[in-house]
Each structure stands twice: as C-alpha cells, then as structure tokens.
C-alpha cells in the first residue's frame, strides 16, 4: 500500500472515531500531529487506529518495539510498502 493510501486509511479511521464522539469530521494531512490536539483522538484511539492499520495493511512495523512517530505522514510511512 502506498503512503497516500495508508494516509487515506488513517483519515477514515480518525473520521469514524470523530463521528462516534459526535465531533466534526477533521481534515487529516501528512503534517497533522496525531496526538497534538488538532485531531479529536487520544492515545486509546491511536491504539485503535494502529490495530486497524496492522489488519488492513498486513504490515507490523511495531512488532520489534516502538518506533517514534508524531505526524499522520510519519505513521503512514511506517505502514507503506517500499
């Protein structure tokens, strides 16, 4: 899956969480900081998003330990296929 495709998945997942909370649909771009306050998600939601990406992409970038990421773009890069 390309970086753009993964980013679209992240946006869809964030959108679904926002909807369940009754929040407005956020715009997610590569520079959106995942836990920076601009997206209506917390760490529990982020755990959910990562689990979804594991399933949807078939990639397990965190299998051997945590890799630092801050933005949606950095997360998408971890899950994209080179």
């Amino acid at each position: 899956m390309s970086e753009e495709a993964v980013l679209a998945r992240i946006e869809a997942a964030v959108g679904e969480i926002a909807e369940s909370k009754g929040a407005a649909q956020p715009k997610v771009s590569a520079s959106s900081r995942m836990l920076g306050g601009e997206l209506p998600i917390d760490s529990l939601d982020l755990a959910t998003i990562v689990l979804r990406l594991d399933t949807e992409t078939g990639q397990r970038p965190f299998e051997d330990g945590f890799i630092e990421f801050h933005t949606a773009g950095e997360l998408a890069k971890l899950y994209s296929q080179p």
């Binding site: 760490s43 529990l44 982020l46 755990a47 959910t48 990562v50 689990l51 965190f62 330990g65 945590f66 890799i67």
Partner: peptide
C-alpha cells in the same frame, strides 16, 4: 489483549 505500541495492550 493484543500488543499495542501505544497503550501496551489493546482490547480485541
């Protein structure tokens, strides 16, 4: 529980 890099474990 399944391993999660964010919260240690996540509920599946």
């Amino acid at each position: 529980g399944v391993p999660s890099p964010i919260t240690g474990q996540a509920v599946l």
